[in-house]
Simulated assay, not measured.
Amino acid sequence: MPRPLTLITGGTRGIGAAVARRLAAEGHDLVLGYARDEDAATRMRAAVESLGASCRLVRADLTSDEGIDALFGEAAEAGRLAGVVNNAGATLHIGPLTQTPSDVIRRVIDLNLTSAVLVARRAVAELAEGGVLVNISSGAATTGSPGEYVHYAAAKAGVDALTKGLAIEAADRGIRVVGVAPGTIDTDIHADASDAGRVARVAASHPLGRAGRAEEVAGVVAFALSSDASYVTGTTIRVAGGR
């Protein structure tokens, strides 16, 4: 049986990297998009190749049409996509909305919503019949994240609507669209927004008393892509420790 080919945006760090490792271990070949961290990308390719996967790295700015074209063009050269994990995102800033600069708000919404919609549009056009698109949302989409990143939460709520509507549009081609909404996960996203201590600060408030691990999200993404989830579409699975 041929190995499925899966594209992961933001696939070389954080949740994306954990998903890449999990899928490589489960027999997927990979196309990994990334923004700028060449060292992380090189390490990730070596890691998934050691698990038996073939891997293409594509440096691409997903806030531009050219970047999305480059990413999917490289994927087309590798073969027909069976799955796309629409994962690239960032908060960029933590603080009340009134203290969040306008340019940061625009950048966050552009990356987390506009680019996610455009990647999803291209994914559904490129996926083989029976393929799966997984949109990475956030628990913030329903909590609103007051005092931290309301702008990011608003963008991710849009991703949840994208998952629902696009799943219905794509159903007649046998393509499933599933959302996965992580809560507080211990990755570099917090340090990238200049608040490296956020995980430790908020973890105790979760019902499970801890932050999540990227590998725990990866397991749910792997499920969503698998035949075990063959009747799952148009919904967002929450991985948020009870919040």
Results as ranks from 00 to 15, higher is better:
residue 72 F to W: 06
residue 168 I to Y: 09
residue 192 D to H: 07
residue 48 V to S: 09
residue 58 V to F: 01
residue 205 S to T: 13
residue 207 P to R: 09
residue 36 R to K: 12
residue 190 H to C: 06
residue 116 A to Y: 05
residue 52 G to P: 05
residue 160 D to Y: 01
residue 55 C to M: 06
residue 48 V to E: 08
residue 237 I to S: 01
residue 116 A to M: 10
residue 172 D to C: 10
residue 66 E to M: 07
residue 126 E to W: 03
residue 136 I to P: 08
residue 13 R to Y: 12
residue 222 A to T: 01
residue 192 D to F: 02
residue 124 V to Q: 06
residue 18 A to V: 00
residue 219 G to E: 13
residue 82 A to W: 08
residue 204 A to I: 01
residue 150 V to H: 00
residue 190 H to R: 02
residue 149 Y to L: 08
residue 181 A to I: 03
residue 74 E to N: 07
residue 56 R to H: 14
residue 194 S to V: 01
residue 19 V to R: 03
residue 227 S to Q: 15
residue 233 T to A: 09
residue 237 I to G: 00
residue 65 D to R: 09
residue 29 D to V: 07
residue 2 P to S: 15
residue 49 E to T: 14
residue 159 V to K: 06
residue 38 E to K: 12
residue 133 L to W: 13
residue 153 A to E: 03
residue 42 T to M: 13
residue 134 V to S: 04
residue 55 C to A: 15
residue 30 L to Y: 10
residue 20 A to I: 09
residue 47 A to G: 07
residue 71 L to N: 01
residue 189 I to Y: 04
residue 4 P to Q: 09
residue 196 A to M: 03
residue 186 D to H: 09
residue 226 S to V: 01
residue 133 L to Q: 12
residue 170 A to Q: 07
residue 222 A to Q: 04
residue 225 L to P: 00
residue 17 A to S: 12
residue 56 R to E: 14
residue 230 S to L: 01
residue 173 R to F: 13
residue 212 G to C: 05
residue 150 V to L: 05
residue 117 V to P: 00
residue 95 G to R: 03
residue 117 V to R: 12
residue 195 D to Y: 12
residue 189 I to K: 06
residue 125 A to Q: 15
residue 39 D to F: 11
residue 11 G to F: 07
residue 232 V to F: 00
residue 182 P to D: 09
residue 50 S to W: 11
residue 157 A to M: 08
residue 141 A to N: 06
residue 27 G to A: 10
residue 140 A to Y: 09
residue 115 S to C: 00
residue 109 I to D: 08
residue 52 G to A: 04
residue 219 G to A: 12
residue 72 F to G: 03
residue 104 V to I: 14
residue 3 R to P: 00
residue 102 S to H: 11
residue 15 I to L: 11
residue 74 E to F: 02
residue 178 V to I: 15
residue 207 P to W: 12
residue 144 G to W: 12
